[in-house]
Design a protein around this nucleic acid. Sequence first.
DNA 1: AACCGACCCAACCGCCATCAC
DNA 2: GGTGATGGCGGTTGGGTCGGT
Length: 297
Amino acid sequence: MGRNPCCSKDEGLNRGAWTGMEDKLLTDYVKTHGEGNWRNLTKRAGLKRCGKSCRLRWLNYLRPDIKRGNITHDEEELIIRLHNLLGNRWSLIAGRLPGRTDNEIKNYWNTNIGKKLQKDNPNSSNLKEKKEKENSNPKAQQSDQHSFKMNMNSSSVVRTKATRCTRVAISQQQLKPMVATRPISVDHVIKDDNKSVEPESLLSQFASKEVHNDDLDLELDFKMDEFNFFSDFLNMDFSQPASLENNNTISSSYNKDHPSPKSDHIDDQTSLLSDDSLHGWDFQSITNLTQSEFNWV
DNA sequence: AACCGACCCAACCGCCATCAC
DNA sequence: GGTGATGGCGGTTGGGTCGGT
């Protein structure tokens, strides 16, 4: 059971389509006070709407930077590429299409692209049929889930569930080549005996081969903001057609309109994903990383 | 003109993650 | 660590519109 809805139906709140007056109240309020604190906003702005509804209305409709309608052929192609890569991660896809909202892209996919693709590939059963099949045959469902897991190895879809990871258990053999090739920021390192070790000391030990076999299975606290490979990856400019081609190798430059989070290690952001700097960080690396024997804690 | 089904899309719902206490 | 509040996300719904008969 989940939580109760944020606004119950008997609170006397308005529902359904928004009126022009409501839009104006919301727009004026957000322009004056900024986004956020949506629940309080409804009272302060004098709106009889639940906060969630206000947030959605603002994000999907009232925001000044929103493009509406007329999704271009280029945008459609980009959506297809991104969907192929990310699956139904509409917010991530929308993040790569300036002015487009996740809701709009989701609707566009469901009403246009999805059907188009289904026409092109009539063998793929539709969603309803799939669900009915699952309901009538739970074993087949389990099997499907199993094959899905197995197929993750070969799938091009990157599962991007936004989960913060601050700790990873890692063995010396695994860490050593990483340290040798990439700068990794480490807050502190805990050895098996629970004694903390200064990272610089550890790295220099690696460099001088002073770490012995009994130092295996270290636990690191990464500064994940700096170890930002996945966010770097997701911030790539996929609008460059070459981005997803070239067989598993990323060859795009950064989208300069959407710079990546700060990195202390990379001086020139725009060159981070250039051919040279990407050496060793291609799709195969992602696969290797996710399939590695790290114990993501 | 009236009916009906298909389509579109704004809005809603339920769940999850995170944060503050 | 537990709990409630809040924001964010993806899936789904339902009302309006359009086109065909």
